[in-house]
Amino acid sequence: MAYMVMRRCGGDGATPSGAPLPVPGITLRDGADAVRLLRRNGQWRVEAGPFPPAELVDAFALLEAASLPEAIAQVRAWPGGDDATVYELREAGCAGGCAGFDERGTVGGNVPRRDPALTRYVFFIRADDVLEQDLVPPPEVIAAMNRHNEQGVRDGVLLAGEGLKSSARGARVRLAAGASTVVDGPFTEVKELIAGYWMLQAGSPEAALDCMRRYPYPGDGDVTLEMHRVREPAAAPGGPPER
């Protein structure tokens, strides 16, 4: 079973560091660079940051574990620094069978192709009261999403994507030097939660935003997406990370 672990940028004493995670994952650029793509009443608009730190994530990774307690135990074994760090763990997978994908490929056998000339962007879909209910979309909606994902990978645009179960299936681990605490979900601050993500590559932020405007989201209601640029590894061994 897969669990997504997200490093929170604020709240509960969490301090964003921009440092890589203790396991392979994705680190994001400063949250001040984030923008939100909002669909309201069928119309799209872009909202520039900065956004409240408590709503942001600055890094994430997928862990394999047999259960949530086992995933929590893995995170509690990570090193704690002088400043507290909060990790949110959520069960990966979206209701209804929309298939996640990453560098290992899609269920259709398509493997994402990274183009170093393009910039990687992560889009988080922000949770709402509906998504927190783990409602199952109609089969035709799930099929349309899966087809779109497969085509996006074939086109060399989409690199990864995964849904997240409601926060009732999650927990938060707070790590500090020599101590750790765990708070079980659900979490009441729904606007601070994430319901899934996509990672894509594009030649510009505008091209990335346009790609996500065309995604076949379930239903015709409101959608809030948050775009972050990926913090790429240093080009030279031992060099500083990209900022």
Rank of each mutant, 00 (worst) to 15 (best):
A73K: 15
A77D: 12
L56I: 00
Q43S: 11
V46Y: 03
G93L: 02
E70A: 15
S67M: 12
E55Q: 09
A84S: 09
P53K: 05
R90K: 14
V86N: 03
A48D: 03
C98M: 11
L56D: 06
L62P: 03
G42V: 09
G97S: 10
R45K: 09
R90Q: 13
G81Y: 06
P53N: 04
T85I: 14
E47K: 14
L68M: 00
D83W: 13
L63W: 01
C98Y: 08
G81P: 07
D58C: 03
P69D: 07
I72T: 10
P50Q: 03
P50A: 03
E55V: 01
P53S: 02
F51S: 04
A61F: 05
A77L: 01
A84L: 05
F60E: 02
E64A: 04
E91Y: 07
A66H: 14
A71M: 13
G80K: 02
E55H: 00
L89N: 11
S67R: 12
Q43R: 12
Q74G: 02
Q43L: 14
W78H: 07
V75I: 02
D58T: 04
W44H: 09
A54P: 03
Q74D: 06
A61S: 06
V57A: 04
A73G: 13
E91A: 15
F60C: 00
V46L: 07
A59R: 00
Q74V: 08
G49D: 02
D58K: 00
G97N: 10
V86E: 08
G42Y: 08
R76D: 01
D58M: 03
P79T: 01
A77Q: 11
G49A: 04
A61M: 02
G42N: 13
V57W: 04
E64D: 12
V86A: 08
A66W: 13
A71S: 04
D82R: 08
A95H: 11
R90A: 15
F51C: 09
L62A: 05
W78K: 11
V75Y: 03
A95M: 14
A59D: 00
G80R: 02
T85P: 08
G49N: 06
P69L: 09
A95K: 09
F60S: 05
Q43C: 12
G96A: 15
R90N: 13
D82A: 12
G96T: 13
A77V: 06
Q74N: 10
I72R: 02
G81C: 08
G93D: 05
E91P: 07
V75Q: 02
C94K: 10
D82N: 05
R90V: 15
S67T: 09
